[in-house]
Design a protein around this nucleic acid. Structure first.
Lengths: 237, 237
DNA sequence: CCAGACTTCTGGTCTATACCAGATCAGCAG
DNA sequence: CTGCTGATCTGGTATAGACCAGAAGTCTGG
């Protein structure tokens, strides 16, 4: 396409990523060091780093440095498997932090579920980690009539969907998903420890039971390089 | 978070986007003009523009300028509706260009379909437009036994899946999807007229009939700001 | 030994300037 | 009217230098 120097620089950096001498424990040398090594300026170097960041090869931690990104997590938003389960199934270490819970109306969730905007909903906000890297900030809203007493239970350590099924006999039959790439909003970026506006992936889900009664709505914000969405579909014409 | 000037600049630019005086026909003023207007340098301005680009608000056309991005296209990769249909259904104008067709083995497709790597496959590569903006570069591979004579037919103007069903009685029962954000590879970037490494979304699909025989595999590369994936799921426990 | 202050290192942001390369269009020659 | 040429517009890439703010390690006084 072009013989832009920074693209060639990007290739040279790519080689560097696999070199354990250069990247100790997945950490790249400082920008100033790299700029000097490649006889260029930080501005140009940062363009090349941003390129690799867009490819999902590296990521930055605020004012700490650049790090090699781990493999993407495979994630099927149509399945009921809990986060902990599928992270472990891929040989990674999951962790979840509940940031807040409350019960109040949330118009966007209500609208997606076809409920009146002032309908109070159980709300859980949490942050999830893979191998100690925060990769997901999410909020979920559950219709109180479907799962009375949810917030009093141990909603943190077990799969929420598993509980909805086993404790309240819900079927989660109908799902409506929307997902698109985004720039992370300020709040989510802060929770994930990245700069506002970093590349992310937004997943929104509305769930209804077999009688088409609304059950749950959730909004997920993932780091763009952290996941690969996989969906398996059977039957249907 | 921070009081970075360029983030405030981003907000000021955001206001500008809706202003028909400033953006004639969706085209932003030149970078030098904007930099002067906001009393800053092109370097800083370009950071702000890149931010808006990440948000999907604007996009660039190589050495022509910056343009306001249209609304995202809703797209359900699990449905059979043809591209032309759902683009029109959203009041937009679709167009498709076939870039090449051939018949030869393609190991990645074969692997996804569970076929030997040297199995020849019908291959169609095309580029698709919404309102004259190229938004999608895709390749698809069809198992010749499932649809003999496919490449001799009129595969361009009608829904390919519709033909697979009506002409060859296929059911397309099982689908396996993978999607993730990516930096557009050189080839796809060139076909879409954007810089290599621009943000994109990759969708790969493997399709099997009701007897689990492999039918088709395809690989789509979308501009990241051009679409919103929606999926509707029914039934299932 | 520990808590808090200080130093140093990192990336984050910004200014100013320069030249290159593709896109575009006006104008000219045929 | 047509097709080419060249000027001019745009963004793309690059240099050099500066200061700021947060992260992290170090040192010091209790």
């Amino acid at each position: 396409m072009s013989d832009a120097y920074y693209l060639r620089l990007t290739d040279r950096l790519r080689e560097l990523l696999g070199d354990p001498d250069a990247c100790v424990e997945g950490r790249l040398p400082a920008e100033r060091t790299l700029a000097e090594r490649f006889r260029t300026t930080r501005v140009t170097l940062r363009q090349a780093l941003a390129q690799l960041e867009g490819e999902g090869r590296i990521h930055r931690s605020n004012r700490r440095g650049w790090f090699v990104s781990p493999a993407r997590l495979d994630y099927d938003p149509t399945r009921d498997a809990g986060f902990n389960d599928y992270v472990r199934a891929q040989g990674r270490r999951p962790r979840t932090e509940v940031l807040l819970t409350d019960t109040r109306p949330h118009p966007p969730a209500a609208e997606a579920l076809g409920l009146p905007a002032d309908q109070p909903l159980f709300h859980i906000r949490r942050r999830r980690f893979v191998d100690d890297r925060a990769v997901l900030a999410e909020s979920l809203w559950v219709v109180p009539e479907r799962a009375p007493g949810l917030l009093e239970g141990d909603y943190a350590s077990h799969s929420l969907w598993g509980q909805l099924r086993s404790r309240w006999g819900l079927s989660l039959a109908h799902r409506s998903l929307r997902l698109y790439s985004e720039a992370l909003p300020e709040r989510e970026a802060a929770e994930l420890g990245v700069a506002a506006g970093s590349a992310g992936l937004s997943v929104r889900r509305a769930i209804f039971d077999e009688r088409r009664r609304p059950v749950e709505y959730d909004e997920e914000h993932w780091l763009h390089d952290a996941l690969c969405i996989t969906v398996e579909l059977d039957g249907k014409a």
